[in-house]
Amino acid sequence: MEANFEILLQQSNTIKNFIKDKVVPLDSAYLLRKADEKSWSVLEVIKHLNLVYDKYLVNLENAVANAEQLQEGGVVKKKTTILGSISVYSQRPKGNKRKFKMKTFDFFEPEINNEELHQTLDDYYAKKNRFNEILRESRLKNLENVKIPTALGERVQFYFYQCLEFLIAHEQRHVVQIKNILSLVKTDSAGI
């Protein structure tokens, strides 16, 4: 029995619990501090994840709402493209290393001020819960042929399943980044 959506749900829950257990309890100084001028703080990473979710969540929710229910005993099938597979592969970290350095789009650049700390974390949970609900509902829907526009626009699209896979791999990549930032700002804690 294939368990495509369950795997993604397990990974998504693991990320959510990492943020809840390892990030949220930290002193705000750690969340706002950057290892250097060019890099992001932990809070900026989370704000970036929120911006990415903003780009995809509504389209994913609409797709789920409009999809037909799978027939009893029906099996969820996933369609993939080479471009989608490369995108997922390039995002997914290898152990605790990000495979490639990459520059984000300008519209995904996080701009943040110190007062936004709690709002940014609350927003993240709200979006994460919406994303997990999409995963739960997708298990029971026929979404095999549905396509979702990427951040590059309507002309470049992911198949539904691969879009979810991409978003999880992207988030896993940023979890590694958060771990790296914390290891740097916690050892070099002068000024905190």
């Binding site: 369950e6 749900l9 397990q10 990974q11 998504s12 829950n13 693991t14 959510k16 619990n17 739960r136 298990r139 029971l140």
Partner: peptide, 9 residues
Amino acid sequence: RALITEAGN
């Protein structure tokens, strides 16, 4: 088919 408990939680 509802999930009563989810892995990762």
